[in-house]
Each structure stands twice: as C-alpha cells, then as structure tokens.
C-alpha cells in the first residue's frame, strides 16, 4: 500500500514538474489533489445540495485510519435518509427506518482513484482549466473548470480547498450553461480525530436487504448477449454483469459506460406491469426507459438527456 502511494505521489510530482506555465496540466494536478484529499482526509461538515428548485441540507463525516475508510451522509431535511460506507460496503437506510439496503462499493476497482493517465484522458472530452480563487465555507478555494467538448456530457465547476485540496463546492451545468445541480459545504472541519463510532451504522433490529441475495458472492462480469453499439463518443463499456438488486427477486443485467468522469448505467430486465417508460430527471441525473422486445431497458446517469437516450436507443439483443 505504502509503495503504491509512493509511486503514485511520484507520478503526481512528475506531472506537477512538467506543468510549468501551462494551465491544463496545473488543472490536472488539482483534479488529482481533489481525488486524493477525498480519500485521505478526516473531515466533517454540513453541506447543501440544490437541484431544480429544491434545496436539501446534509451532514457528512469522513474518516480514514489504518483499517480503511469510513463515511456517512445524513440528510437533515425531509424524511431522514442515511448512507454509510465502511470500506467497500455501502449501507443505505430507508426512510421507513426498518430496512437497510446493503450494496458493494466497487468504484475503486473500476476506477482506481482516477490515476493520472485516466485524468489525462479526460482532456480528450473536456477542456480543463483553472479559474480564480474564491471563498467557500470560509475557506480559500481554487476554481477548476471542466468544459465539455460536445453535448453528451455536463460541464463542471469545482472549488477545491487551497490548503488541503478537498472539494468544497461543485456545480454541474448543461450545454446551455444552466446549472443542473450543485452542492456546497456551508461549514466544514478538516483534520483532527474522528471517533469510529460516529461512522458506524447502527444495524441492530434492522432488516438487511443485500444486492446479490443472501450468501451469494459478488456478481461476475458476464457477456449478457445484449449489445450497445454506438454509445456517444468517449463512453466506453467499463462493466457488464448480472445481479439482483436489493429487494428484487429477478436478476437484472447491468452494463456501465463511462468517459472517465461521467457514467451511465444500463439496466435490462423483463418488462413487468410496474415498468414505466419515458424520460425523467432529477438534478444532473437523467433516466430514460424504453421497451426492447420483452425487456425494459433503463439508462441512468449523471449525463444529459441526449446521452441516456442515445445509449438507450442503441441497445439491442445480439442474434
């Protein structure tokens, strides 16, 4: 682990030394700093999430020690909802207060912490540059702007704490330069010890529903027979598997596409009476659902409506 970290820091250092005066490289280094800070630092604070005309406040805590990463998110408005992550296990407390959905967190395996080559690859689809210095939650921040080069992805504006690199504010905007959603810390404490008990889910007396059925191991990558030819430029298939979602009885095919920053999931399952077809969105999340033969195809992602539709319409069964 330490060697890996050392090697990685060398890479970052190498990137930094190459940077010189050219802004894009500086911006890349900042992206790397943000990624690193999100995983390595202890922090807790309150933040607001705005989408459409809705604003929600949440409290988050992140802790890293020798045994790994622990974090939690608790919403403060509306019905209470909580998410905990203990290393690669994610617990989602449902509002009914009885059920807890348990899922694996595999992002690290698919995207090993946005390694420098991957970040460099982003510049093919986004123009990445540094903005000015701005203050968020009482702290000085560096602004980083990612402008998409086509209509298939959203733009991002990131505010990273100058001192630690932690992302304190992020906004997602559409092709028309309108903000689709954003979150910002209003108060944050970075560093210092955090008690493990604070980030441990209280599971006593809860009904646990797991994503792959009791006793089943992780879903295996498969070739489902489904074909998505002609995904929008830059979106590559990063995963394909058959799995049972928490609380579901039937397995679903889950295929993931990503350009390295944005991702879209394709879920394919037999059409049922409950299947709703059409298009919908919530903040940056767009979802498109259509019927292909006897199956319902659902595409979900933090990408524009054009992208989920493009992917959804490209789904077919290989004969």
């Amino acid at each position: 682990m330490k060697q890996l970290l050392a090697a990685w820091m060398l890479l970052v250092a190498a990137m930094a030394s190459q940077a010189g005066d050219t802004t894009p490289d500086d911006a890349m280094v900042w992206l790397q700093r943000i990624t690193n800070a999100a995983q390595q630092l202890n922090y807790s604070g309150s933040f607001v999430y705005q989408h459409g005309q809705q604003v929600e406040t949440s409290r988050i805590t992140h802790m890293k020690d020798a045994s790994g990463e622990y974090e939690k998110l608790v919403t403060l408005d509306g019905r209470p909802r909580q998410i905990y992550r203990n290393n690669d296990e994610v617990y989602c407390f449902m509002p009914d207060d009885k059920t807890v959905m348990v899922d694996r967190h595999r992002v690290k395996k698919s995207f090993p912490a946005l390694l420098p080559p991957q970040i460099a690859g982003l510049s093919e689809f986004y123009e990445i540059k540094l903005g000015g210095q701005e203050r968020v939650a009482g702290r000085e921040c560096q602004v980083i702007i990612l402008t998409p080069k086509d209509q298939y992805r959203y733009g991002h504006r990131l505010w990273a704490d100058t001192q630690t690199g932690l992302l304190l504010k992020a906004s997602t905007w559409s092709e028309k330069k309108q903000i689709v959603d954003q979150f910002a810390f209003t108060q944050i404490k970075i560093g210092g010890p955090i008690d493990r008990s604070e980030v441990k889910p209280a599971l006593k007396g809860k009904r646990l529903v797991r994503s792959t059925g009791e006793g089943t191991s992780q879903p295996l990558p498969i070739d489902s027979g489904w074909d998505v030819s002609g995904a929008p430029p830059g979106f590559k298939k990063v995963n394909e598997m058959k799995r049972v979602l928490p609380g579901a009885s039937m397995p679903v095919n889950h295929i993931v596409f990503s350009d390295g920053l944005a991702a879209a999931s394709v879920f394919i399952e037999p059409v049922s009476e409950k299947s709703t077809l059409g298009l919908s969105h919530q903040g940056a999340l767009n979802v498109y659902s259509r019927q292909v033969g006897e199956y319902q195809v659902k595409v979900l992602g933090e990408v524009p409506a054009a992208t989920v539709m493009h992917i959804g319409d490209a789904v077919s069964f290989r004969k």
Partner: peptide, 23 residues
Amino acid sequence: LAHQEFSPSYAMEGIPAYVRTVS
C-alpha cells in the same frame, strides 16, 4: 445505489456524491 457504485465522479466528490442517490 447500484449505479453510484460505478460512478467515477465519486472519486472526486467523495460521499457527497451519494446525495443524489438519497435526494
């Protein structure tokens, strides 16, 4: 939840990324 576990934006945003899941 199933989608979120594969979303690379998580790497940068950390746990706040899950706010969309529970919104």
